[in-house]
């Protein structure tokens, strides 16, 4: 089993990624925390005062949305480059190539977990309704990991052949930011669009995060099943595309 055989390598690559990321900026990890907080302040100011949305715990509401979204945005855009960024590991030695994507996704996943950890004291400060349902959070985040990993497999494999994909993906991520309920309440979506709007697994996921963390609500069975199915489908699709394209990586990289 490749996961057991290569676990030391996967872990080593993940840690190296984190080390290099946090070494290269002076404030290191602090920046990756300041970024979502400052983002939240800007969006809170704009959407609470200009648009005058009325949503319970709106500051936390935005913050949870941003932190969750950051995992998808950063995770996919760094993992997309993971194959091309290490050409010698593709052309000079054999390792299962999806390890590169996996360890890149894992390192963003760890950053994301740390960001959520910092969120917890803020939940108390802003008076969120904390109940034991908060313990479901790791399950939701694990499902999210597979969604991001599945997507990253597709993107990383395609990026080897299409080197402007990152420009295109940047726009898609921008669009996605406004297509998911991150900085506005879901109630402003016109009812005729709502059935399509909730097809987006990320929408369901962010709402689930908020239910666990802010509103202290139990998990909805239907949304959880929907999330697990979406993650599984994305993983299968990702593996399929990756295995198809992987065979010629060493020739075109």
């Amino acid at each position: 089993m490749w996961l057991m055989q290569y676990r030391d390598l996967i872990w080593n690559l993940t840690i190296t990624d984190l080390k290099v990321k946090y070494q290269s900026s002076v404030l290191g990890f602090a920046w990756s925390l300041l970024n979502p907080l400052l983002m939240m302040l800007v969006l809170f100011f704009v959407f609470a005062n200009v648009f005058r949305f009325n949503q319970e715990h709106f500051a936390l509401y935005i913050l949870v949305g941003i932190i969750a979204w950051r995992f998808l945005a950063n995770g996919t855009s760094t993992a997309m480059l993971s194959i091309v960024a290490k050409p010698s590991l593709v052309t000079k030695i054999f390792i299962p190539r999806h390890i590169l994507v996996l360890s890149s996704t894992l390192s963003t996943f760890i950053s994301s977990i740390l960001e959520f950890c910092v969120l917890i004291p803020l939940l108390f400060v802003f008076g969120a309704n904390i109940t034991p349902y908060i313990l479901f959070f790791p399950i939701a985040h694990a499902i999210f990991f597979f969604i991001v990993y599945g997507l990253s497999l597709v993107l990383a494999a395609l990026y080897v052949y299409y080197r402007d994909l990152n420009q295109i993906w940047e726009v898609v991520i921008q669009l996605g930011f406004f297509l998911a309920p991150i900085c506005y309440p879901i109630t402003i979506v016109p009812p005729q669009f709502l059935p399509y709007y909730v097809l987006n697994p990320v929408t369901i996921l962010i709402e689930t995060y908020r239910n666990f963390l802010i509103y202290g609500l139990p998990p909805g069975l239907r949304s959880m099943v929907y999330l697990v199915i979406s993650a599984a489908l994305l993983m299968i699709f990702g593996k399929f595309v990756f295995n198809r394209l992987e065979r010629r990586f060493a020739e075109v990289i």
Binding site: D8, N12, L89, K92
Partner: peptide, 30 residues
């Protein structure tokens, strides 16, 4: 495979860290 030496070496890591990284790439356990 010794197709090239130092595959995966990272300039921002120390010699010690690189030994562990390169060793893992070459299939050694920690």
């Amino acid at each position: 495979p010794f197709l090239e030496l130092g595959v995966g070496f990272h300039p921002d890591l120390t010699a010690e860290e690189n030994i562990y990284l390169y060793g893992a790439i070459m299939g050694l356990t920690k």
